[in-house]
């Protein structure tokens, strides 16, 4: 009883603390100075049709590098804690149903292609490296669930992950050497606005981010699945 009263008091306290945010909220009538600068100069400057992408990959590219690093550390942590007892006796697993197997075989390539599409078109349409990578990883999860016997080759996974991570940083350094700064996309030709091969290095960077994120998430799922039996 005392505990419940305590919880209610804390909730009321939070409500009082957050109330001014709601009460004094007025929608912004115009963009802030930084946002205005990005909106006005972004398309001409970087040549990306999707402004969100040009902010994430170029203007705030260092943050994205940090996010990818955080994801890498998370994957490493999961791998470290789950793979301690690898050589236990495997329990015999029941095959998944016919519907799931057929659906998995049909949908897995489509989901993979959708993921590749999302990160290749990150500079034109909503989405990008992270979203495409996650979609690809969920396709792999679907395959793992529908075909229990599927084994994922760890070496290939780690190779994809580390090579694309290294390539991401290498492109960043190339931007530093050949253009204005770290992760600057303008060392490649900006091309025609709105085409697939435009916006300099953004499609390249996003492809590497997508591959890296996809490989990392597949690694997490694979570790958890191997740990099941």
């Amino acid at each position: 009883m005392v505990k419940k009263i305590f919880i209610v008091i804390i909730l009321v306290f939070f409500a009082v603390m957050l109330l001014p945010l709601v009460k004094d909220f007025t929608p912004f009538q115009e963009l802030s100075t930084t946002a205005k600068e990005y909106v006005q100069k972004g398309p001409d400057d970087l040549g990306a049709a999707n402004l969100v992408t040009s902010v994430i990959v170029t203007y705030r590219g260092l943050d994205t590098l940090g996010e990818v690093a955080v994801l890498f550390i998370a994957t490493a942590g999961v791998g470290f804690f789950l793979r301690r007892d690898g050589n236990k006796i495997k329990r015999k697993q029941r095959d998944s149903s016919q519907i799931l197997q057929t659906g998995g075989a049909f949908l897995f390539p489509l989901i993979l292609v959708l993921g590749v599409y999302i990160f290749m078109h990150g500079h034109l349409t909503p989405g990008g490296g992270f979203q495409g990578g996650v979609v690809m990883a969920s396709g792999m999860v679907f395959l793992l669930l529908s075909k229990i016997s599927t084994k994922i080759n760890d070496t290939v996974l780690h190779l994809i992950e580390s090579l694309s991570g290294a390539a991401y940083v290498a492109i960043g350094v190339l931007g530093l050497v050949l253009a204005a700064g770290f992760l600057d996309n303008r060392f490649l030709d900006l091309g025609e606005f709105g085409r697939l091969l435009s916006a300099g290095a953004i499609p390249l960077i996003y492809s590497f981010v997508g591959l890296k994120v996809g490989a990392e998430l597949v690694g997490i799922i694979d570790n958890m699945q191997k740990d099941q039996s």
Binding site: G127, Q131, V134, S138, V141, I221, M224, Q225
Partner: peptide
């Protein structure tokens, strides 16, 4: 839409699957 895609794919897709794997392991 960019944030929506991330939220749908990670929040309701992968997180749920990871939780289900964890639940399975805890039960075992």
């Amino acid at each position: 839409p960019d944030v929506a895609m991330t939220e749908a794919a990670i929040g309701s897709g992968l997180t749920t699957i990871v939780f289900l794997f964890a639940l399975n392991k805890v039960r075992k």
